[in-house]
Design a binder for these strands. Structure first.
Lengths: 352, 352
DNA sequence: CACTCCTGCGTAAAGGTTTACGCAAAATAC
DNA sequence: GTATTTTGCGTAAACCTTTACGCAGGAGTG
């Protein structure tokens, strides 16, 4: 019989409780709390007091059901461990929060069927919109996205798609910038370590490498191209040995992303090779640790944070503005960030 | 009049549509689709066929409302840019996903009122549970957590709290491990760069430093303690100069986290000081880039990923098992990870 | 004074699902 | 053959909100 806090099941306080407490109807309470419709200042005072007093908090599930809005945005990325996606997620979180949305983080582990699964499940209405950065953009992706009621923004590489809002960056062009820079520094035999070539970014970057060679009338030497396996740090470290097997040894190497570049630099360091004196290294993405590496890594920024912000803003626009405007594509230009890993050392400025 | 795909508002397909399509009641459809209650195999076949054919997807908001479960877990952390929290988030995401939950990412930007705001808003039932790693655990935190209907797991430093599920790590003990290691290497004047000392981790680590000194009968020299401002990389870089102003120059430095340690190493490098020959450096957290630094950074792992996993499992247990079991505390032991930044160099093993 | 307009608020429906309950028919028991 | 249990399914309530609609009374206008 001692029921002093035996069980929690103490039925939530609902809008009806507030209404009863201050002798009005639930409609009035709702109007006051949502500042919608008409009510007297006296009623407002009483309702607000009652609500505060009994600790009323509107039930989000019921609200969603009625309003047909969850106030949630889903973000689908392939690997939350990748600093690039973290940067994106961070700025996206910022924007959606400012607009009163919560962010749901969905990780696909680089599995295409997971991506499709997410698209399908959007039909269940657990989020009002989706930002997705797919590893590849297949016909199936397109099909499901088109079928969705909610707006979708795709963060991806350059593509011909014009039927969905997207934030694009031409990473292939980024590779060309890197190549130009290396050539201007006097390097001419430049190797290329790629990530998985069947992914959109992998393909784009490889094409960038080819076209840079063509552009500068350089011979295409397949021996200079190494498949890095994946876009990870250990992927770079592992394949760096193959770099040293190339003969004659290349003067410089472009890596398809910073993580791999850092892995490569580490391997070179362990083998006693100095960067850039013995081999110049350039990465891509401009993650925070690129600037911290020893030597600081030259890289091509793809403006991940910026792209995240833009994608989120595009989505907010869709959600709050005219949803029938034609799909928008916004493009972002890769930017070369020159640091010490690729500049010819004239004089060594030693300290102390 | 040409209404060929003019507007989207084409009312969602509901359970009623499925029911009508195959001539049963909505209750039957629900039973079949949820594999609950009784139904014939023939009915099952028809319902499933109809559902698939017209592309039925159960509305998540309605389901939540009725079931009183959102199938969502909220994660509140102060900075998604911090690799430690990323590691936690990653393993938490893993676990909750395996249990059929989605993860909502809430960022507090290290603002205490944001943390409280999140606790309050949990009453709105947008998530079934919460994992929070608060910068500090105040009376107000406790009050609101106790008031919540949903289970909460706190990831934090060691504390006296026993009224809430928590995953604890004694980072102060971690600092003592670092100190012991440095002393065993022959260093004796060891400086300490702390993060904000009013936060739980800041205070714990400072106390760890003090007690390590006491433990080894070393004099307490306030001049060896530097307030690093925050736990960021630039925070470490900025305050490193003050390290060199100390006279006589300390032989080693313990930094309250890896990011600051990396900042310090960078500064030392720029000033021409070599680590560990001129000064040994030890960090804390064991973030991925600690092993990549030059030289690789000795650090104390606080097992962030592990703690995230444990917290998530604790929460799942609460949600799926007996919710009235007494609060659990699980503790994790800091682990010293020795790398080159703190070991006396006997012979230099150069390559090539 | 009669009319219209406005204000403040209540009634009730709607949103899509799950599930307790009950009923008819079929299956089983004796 | 009747009595009992089991099976399969439908009816309707419940979850908690928001909001369209309408009504009564007061204010304004002529």
């Amino acid at each position: 019989m001692t029921d002093n806090k035996m069980r929690k099941p103490v039925r939530d306080v609902t809008i009806a409780d507030v209404a009863e407490k201050c002798g009005v109807s639930i409609a009035t309470v709702s109007r006051v709390l949502n500042r919608k419709g008409r009510y007297s200042v006296e009623t407002q005072r009483r309702v607000e007091a009652a609500a505060r007093e009994i600790g009323y908090a509107p039930n989000h599930m019921a609200k969603s059901l009625k309003r047909k809005r969850t106030e949630q945005i889903a973000l689908a990325i392939s690997d939350i461990g990748n600093p690039v996606y973290v940067a994106m997620a961070k700025s996206i979180q910022q924007v959606v929060k400012d607009h009163g949305y919560r962010l749901i983080l969905l990780s696909t582990e680089a599995l295409v069927h997971e991506e499709i699964g997410i698209l399908k499940s959007m039909a269940k209405h657990f989020a009002d919109g989706l930002i997705i950065s797919p590893l590849l953009y297949s016909e199936e992706h397109r099909k499901w996205i088109k079928r969705l009621k909610q707006p979708v923004v795709v963060i991806s590489g350059i593509a011909e798609e014009t039927d969905v809002d997207s934030v694009l960056v031409d990473s292939g062009h980024g590779i060309r910038l890197a190549m130009e820079h290396l050539l201007s520094q006097g390097y001419s035999r430049v190797a290329f370590i790629n990530g998985p070539s069947q992914t959109v970014p992998g393909r784009a970057r490889l094409n960038g490498y080819y076209s840079a060679l063509v552009e500068h009338n350089l011979p295409i030497d397949e021996g200079l191209i190494i498949d890095g396996g994946d876009f990870t740090l250990s992927g770079g470290y592992m394949t760096a040995s193959r770099l040293l097997e190339i003969s004659p040894r290349p003067e410089a190497v472009i890596c398809a992303n910073d993580l791999m570049a850092l892995g490569v630099m580490r391997y070179l360091g362990e083998k006693g090779l100095r960067v850039p004196r013995d081999m110049a290294v350039v990465g891509m993405d401009d993650i925070e640790h690129a600037s911290l590496a020893v030597p600081p890594l030259t890289t091509v920024s793809l403006l991940a944070a910026e792209r995240g912000r833009m994608a989120a803003e595009l989505l907010m626009e869709r959600l709050e503005g005219s949803s029938d405007a034609p799909p928008k594509q916004v493009k972002v230009l890769p930017k070369l960030v020159v640091r010490e890993s690729s500049v010819v050392v004239e004089t060594v400025t030693g300290g102390a």
